[in-house]
Computed example of a mutant assay.
Amino acid sequence: MLTAVRSRSRNALTMLSALVTLTAVALAGCSASTTPSGPAAPEASASRSQAAPAGDAFPVTIPSALGDAVIPKKPERVVTWGWSSQDAVLALGVVPVAMPKNTYGGDADGVLPWDAEKIKELGGTTPALLSSDSGEVPFEEIVEARPDVILAPYSGITKDDFAKLSKVAPVVAYPEKPWALPWQDQIEIIGKALGRSAEATALREKTAAYVASLAQANPVLKGKSFLYGAANEADQLNIYRASDPRVALLVDLGMTVSPSVAALDGDPTSGSYFYGISYENVGKIDADVLVMYFGSQKEADKFVADPVIAAMPNIREKRFAPIVGESFVMASSAPTVLSIPWMLDRYVPQLAAAVGKTGA
């Protein structure tokens, strides 16, 4: 589920071309006198009447690894793609017109719990939910949403995807690597794209202060080493590199990445955010705490029941802090200003208890 794969069908691209043409004609006929259909940000008229904070004048240009997004005016119809961009948009008080559907971790509609809470708080309605299970960019659905901007800074879109989506609206992609944007940068980039930089900076500082308060309240975490892994492939442990945002979040809590993460990495320049080792090598892991995620308790129980895994010191000595439940997996895999407080209040006590068993 959490492996980033992107592909496209020839029929989808053909439909995209036709839809872009039709959309351009429709928009030209609508003009500003017609109110666009579909969900909109709550209190949109009020927000448009307010002067933008200093530094938020439009047009604005946001560079990325795939090209520049030139946003001519403050966006009103926002589409998000990839992981978690909708969190930053909602946190800034805007309800997207379309965002990815999350069948993994979401509610019956495919909306993540912290997003559902925020939409309700804002008095908005559920946006159009973009098909995301296949891993393909849903070009036709994005065109139908008639976006002013497409926000995909935490995604795996390709240069070809970027070029095609840019025919629909300006596309904000990742600054350097796919699937590797820290939450701090995400809120700042999206804040700039929406003309809400001051609000974004305030949210970044508030969330950082919250994480720091948890670290201060749990001094047992300070300096303890951890390895963050996943058992989502048969007889293989996937290990997340130090640059991954889920790893960085634990570092922000005062912990340190185990030297084993670098020592076991057979190809550190691969560009991926994780790598795999076979179960026969798990005995080489040396970490105060093993952190892993599981979609259900049944999956976690199956993992620790394997004789090779059960023999690991971390498992034997209960220096193991699993993140269990699909929503928790999503919250920790792509941390944001919304998901961080949603999950850390519940997870940090468990993490601290596992660290406490190190006896040091």
Rank of each mutant, 00 (worst) to 15 (best):
D345C: 02
G93P: 02
L66D: 01
A310I: 07
D301R: 14
G55K: 08
G124A: 10
W179F: 12
A12R: 01
A311C: 06
A300T: 09
D56W: 05
D235W: 10
N232E: 12
L2R: 13
P113M: 07
A217N: 12
T269F: 06
W81Y: 11
S85E: 04
V168W: 03
K206M: 05
A321D: 06
A26R: 14
L181S: 05
P313L: 12
P72H: 12
A242D: 13
S45Y: 10
A145G: 03
D115Y: 06
V97H: 06
K101M: 03
T336I: 00
R241F: 02
F303I: 14
A69Y: 07
K74T: 14
L181E: 02
V78E: 02
D185V: 06
T125L: 11
R246V: 02
K74V: 13
M255T: 03
A208T: 15
L290S: 12
D133H: 05
K159N: 11
V95F: 07
V257R: 09
G195H: 10
S327P: 05
L214M: 13
D133K: 14
L92P: 00
R246Y: 08
L227W: 06
K206N: 09
C30A: 15
Q184I: 10
V149K: 05
K73L: 09
W114L: 03
P170D: 08
R196F: 10
A200T: 10
S166N: 08
I189D: 01
I309L: 14
G105E: 08
A54V: 12
A248I: 07
G67D: 09
I340G: 00
S7A: 14
S131I: 03
L338N: 05
D235S: 15
P335H: 00
G254D: 04
P170E: 09
G223F: 07
A169H: 00
T80E: 00
G110P: 02
E144P: 00
